[in-house]
Design a binder for these strands. Structure first.
Length: 588
DNA sequence: CGCGATCTAAACAGAA
DNA sequence: ATTCTGTTTAGATCGC
């Protein structure tokens, strides 16, 4: 019945405010990537906060139940006491662990950049982070528990249970008053309450450091008794928190809390890992970076720059790319012949100036990215058309089917249909590699690999360019960082906007950024695709089937589904959705 | 600077 | 009359 108020304020310590974000930005303390990571973590934390809150609520309920149950079996308690006592040590250690876990978590975040706030700025005092956060909630809970227990125990005794209640009783009574007193300070939790700071005794705790004693306050869950000296605390600990029903129950709860937290932590870590992996892969488009799986387009930001990419300001020597992302070199090593031919020449056009190479591997791994992000793919129309055709079971597609493939595979082609469709037709007619074949049902387009290969060499003269790109990229760091930084720099996107976004909106975040710089990416970047070192064009190509390259668009079919539908083009259904790009722009 | 690749835009034409 | 398909031409950007 008693509800623990979960004040938002309590969680503020962990959350970085937009202002802080900006500060960080302005200080150039972090690179765009780092910020990205930071934002993600921030969001993860926020989510965690919510989950924790819920958890606490549940916990509270459970606790009440538990207490009631224990009440009934109080008679046995005395016997159990022995066992309990045996476990007490373990429990206490658990408590210790809890705190450690919490602190570690925070420290981790700190290390990862989340809290890399300048020392000078006390805006986010570390101690506040490492200390109260979670406890804040717990404290409330504990108080509830404690009070409840006390009452119950009282009843117990009054009812005649007498003998059994003893300890609990003794302790409870004194505790109650203390809580009352302390509650006032509760709000300032963790702070040095005006309380006797003079005593300086608070400062020395360093020596008698006790996990349950901090800043002159008893850290026992639900207890916030204040002490001037460590000795007093110890006394209190032994008296108030001796082995009894209440303590036991609290330990149990604490254990659960710990477990829950650990679980959460594990989950978040996993998530973070996945995010980093994902981002690293995607690298290419700046806007995209953040996006997870499917980008929910729901951004308020307006696309300011349609094609904007002019600012050659790129030269920002990226502020040290974030490490997590694997270096390009690695990526390239992944390149396989298959992946290579999957996509033909890359559109380097505007890209070159930015030196944001993209390896074939990236491409293949970016399928999802392009499917969900409205960024222009770095491939030429010819390459894309070829890919579309080769992806089809029959290695032939009608014009409309090609259109569908484009819209299905690339979010970018879900708009401006008139333009790109015209380009597609133009390419089909212009390039000899595309052969029109009259069919019963009409006409279909096929690819003349030989012809296609003929022309490829010219553009992306294999290695030299690639090498160059690689080097440059390395210089800039991970592809992701390069692209991301570039975009960020160019668009000067206000990151703080994202900060406020909840985790569920990671997607929208990406989208937002994307929208912001919509077009900025135009410069394709890229390079790699052809790089294929010594690709044997013809031979491999002939068997169109060979295209199992990772790129294989087919898999893309399922918007989110990772269903790998071999070559069978599941096309039908999916494209239907995008059929009229026109209005569907926002569909996703 | 010239050339080729690529894009975008647009004019046209024939077929559905 | 419109729309879809294709073909062409033209202008512009880029990289080599």
């Amino acid at each position: 019945s008693v509800k623990v108020p979960f004040s938002v304020a309590m969680m503020t310590p962990q959350v970085i405010t937009p202002q802080q974000m900006q500060q960080i930005l302005q200080q150039q303390v972090l690179s765009p990537q780092q910020l990205q990571v930071l934002l993600q973590q921030q969001q993860a934390l926020m989510l965690q906060q919510q989950q924790l809150q819920e958890f606490y609520k549940k916990q509270q309920e459970q606790l009440h139940l538990q207490l009631l149950q224990q009440q009934h079996g109080s008679s046995k308690q005395s016997k159990e006491q022995h066992q309990v006592s045996a476990q007490q040590l373990a429990f206490q250690q658990q408590l210790l662990q809890v705190q450690q876990v919490q602190q570690q978590h925070l420290l981790n975040l700190q290390r990862q950049g989340l809290l890399s706030i300048q020392p000078g700025q006390t805006s986010l005092p570390l101690h506040s982070l490492t200390q109260g956060i979670i406890p804040a909630e717990l404290q409330q809970l504990w108080k509830e528990v404690a009070n409840a227990q006390v009452k119950e125990e009282h009843n117990n005794n009054n009812n005649g249970g007498g003998s059994n209640g003893h300890r609990g009783l003794d302790l409870s009574s004194p505790a109650t008053p203390k809580n009352a007193v302390i509650n006032q300070h509760a709000s300032t939790n963790g702070q040095y309450i005006g309380h006797k700071r003079e005593g300086s005794t608070l400062e020395e705790p360093s020596h008698h450091s006790h996990p349950l004693y901090s800043h002159g306050v008893c850290k026992w869950p639900g207890c916030e008794a204040v002490f001037d000296d460590f000795q007093s605390f110890l006394k209190h600990l032994n008296n108030e928190h001796a082995l009894d029903d209440r303590s036991t129950a609290q330990c149990r709860v604490q254990m659960q809390v710990v477990q829950q937290l650990e679980l959460q932590l594990a989950k978040d870590k996993e998530r973070l890992q996945a995010m980093m992996t994902h981002l690293h892969v995607k690298s290419t488009e700046p806007k995209a970076t953040p996006q997870p799986l499917n980008l929910v387009s729901s951004v308020t930001l307006s696309k300011s720059a349609p094609e904007a990419s002019p600012p050659l300001s790129l030269p920002h020597t990226p502020t040290t790319p974030t490490a997590p992302l694997t270096p390009l070199s690695q990526t390239h090593s992944v390149i396989t012949p298959n992946s290579l031919h999957s996509v033909g020449p890359i559109r380097r056009r505007y890209s070159e100036k930015y030196n944001m190479p993209i390896s074939p591997a990236d491409i293949s791994q970016n399928k999802e990215f392009y499917m969900n992000t409205d960024v222009r793919p770095p491939f030429t129309y010819a390459s894309l058309i070829r890919q579309a055709i080769l992806d089809s079971p029959e290695k032939q597609l009608t014009l409309n089917e090609i259109y569908n493939w484009f819209t299905r595979m690339f979010a970018y082609f879900r708009r401006n249909a008139a333009t790109w469709k015209n380009a597609v037709r133009h390419n089909l007619s212009l390039h000899k590699c595309f052969v029109r074949v009259e069919n019963v049902k009409g006409a279909v387009w096929t690819v003349d690999e030989i012809e296609f290969q003929k022309r490829r060499p010219q553009k992306i003269s294999g290695s030299p360019a690639l090498v160059k790109n690689i080097q440059t990229s390395l210089g800039y760091g991970p592809t992701l960082s390069a692209a991301f930084q570039a975009s960020m720099a160019e668009n000067n996107i206000p990151l703080y906007t994202t900060a406020s976004i909840g985790s569920p909106t990671l997607n929208s975040l990406a989208h937002a950024i994307r929208e912001e710089m919509n077009g900025a990416m135009d410069h394709g970047n890229s390079n790699g695709s052809d790089s294929s070192p010594g690709r044997s064009p013809l031979s491999a190509m002939h068997h169109i089937s060979v295209k199992e390259e990772p790129l294989d668009p087919d898999d893309h079919d399922g918007p989110l589904s990772l269903v790998t539908t071999a070559n069978h083009s599941p096309d039908l259904d999916l494209h239907r959705d995008y059929e009229d790009d026109q209005g569907h722009d926002d569909m996703l």
